[in-house]
């Protein structure tokens, strides 16, 4: 057992962090660094890496709160061999079917509750724009009955990988909330000292870190094992780390956290969006219960 990053994985993480976090890259740049070709076999022009490397890359994307159809494009290329921009959209148990960034997409990978998959040309999808809460993730509402899909071993892989990569985004986002909260708590002064010197604030931050770190190893381990139930557990913990982390980050920012310009709200709104992407909480819990 050597459950830690290899030297190559460390290098990949550092390189991606430079590209992704230090400057907001364009879609073209993300494509050029190979974010969507990581798992595509080398003979087909990809990097021939595995799920653990993809998870490390998506963690960085989450830390940078990148916009765009990241997960679907990667999964379409790696699992289905489809080029172009794609997004995985789950038909939820309740409420509308929402497709992010529809006009920019080439494919919509529509997953039904039974994991059957309909691969649709985006241009053929009948949908209307809807006013989204997350300003960086516009949504379209699907009209009519979602077209039926098929179940194959590949469609199960699409479902599991989309859930895992979304969990990786959430882990990155959760770490970002810790960093933002700590940075603010160290500089903001009240009662003559940084608010981060008060234990009430310290303990909030400590819990944020504990949730993020536990979710991180859960996501890494699920990437190594590839097990569907372990992936469900990792998504559950990653969603909690990101959503709860963003809430606490907002709390640490006090009144400023409630403003539009402080941008903390963008972390929370994205965490809410990613919570519903891939397998949502109910689905993860039922998956875990089935194994018990």
């Amino acid at each position: 057992m050597e459950f830690r990053l290899t030297e190559d994985q460390h290098s990949l993480q550092r390189a991606l962090r430079q590209v992704v976090t230090d400057r907001q890259p364009s879609w073209q740049e993300l494509t050029e660094v190979g974010l969507f070709q990581l798992r595509v076999p080398e003979p087909e022009g990809g990097l021939g890496l595995g799920l653990p490397e993809a998870v490390l890359a998506f963690e960085e994307a989450g830390r940078a709160v990148l916009a765009g159809p990241l997960v679907g494009t990667e999964v379409a290329a790696a699992v289905l061999g489809l080029d172009g921009r794609a997004e995985v959209v789950r038909v939820p148990a309740r409420g509308p079917v929402l497709v992010p960034e529809l006009p920019t997409l080439d494919h919509v990978l529509l997953l039904h509750p039974d994991d059957s998959l309909a691969v649709l040309p985006a241009a053929a999808v009948d949908a209307a724009p809807a006013a989204a809460v997350d300003p960086d993730r516009p949504l379209w509402r699907l009209d009519g009955t979602p077209p039926p899909g098929e179940r194959t071993p590949e469609t199960r892989r699409v479902a599991a990988d989309a859930t895992l990569l979304t969990a990786a985004l959430q882990v990155g986002l959760a770490s970002r909330t810790v960093a933002e909260a700590v940075a603010y708590a160290r500089t903001r002064e009240q009662f003559g000292q940084p608010i981060g010197a008060f234990q009430a604030v310290q303990h909030l931050c400590a819990d944020m870190l504990a949730r993020a770190e536990l979710a991180r190893v859960a996501v890494y381990a699920a990437a190594v094992s590839g097990d569907e139930v372990e992936i469900a557990g990792a998504k559950l913990l990653a969603d909690d780390a990101a959503v709860h982390g963003a809430r606490d980050c907002l709390q640490v920012h006090g009144g400023m956290g409630f403003t539009w310009e402080a941008r903390v709200h963008r972390l929370l709104k994205r965490a809410w969006a990613w919570e519903q992407a891939g397998a949502d909480r109910e689905r993860c819990l039922e998956s875990l219960a089935t194994r018990l």
Binding site: A221, A232, G233
Partner: peptide
Amino acid sequence: RELATLAAEFAALWRLVQWNVS
């Protein structure tokens, strides 16, 4: 669902042990 959550947490905690040991 409480039991399912606990299963996920203890599975992750075991992975954290493996991580820390490594």
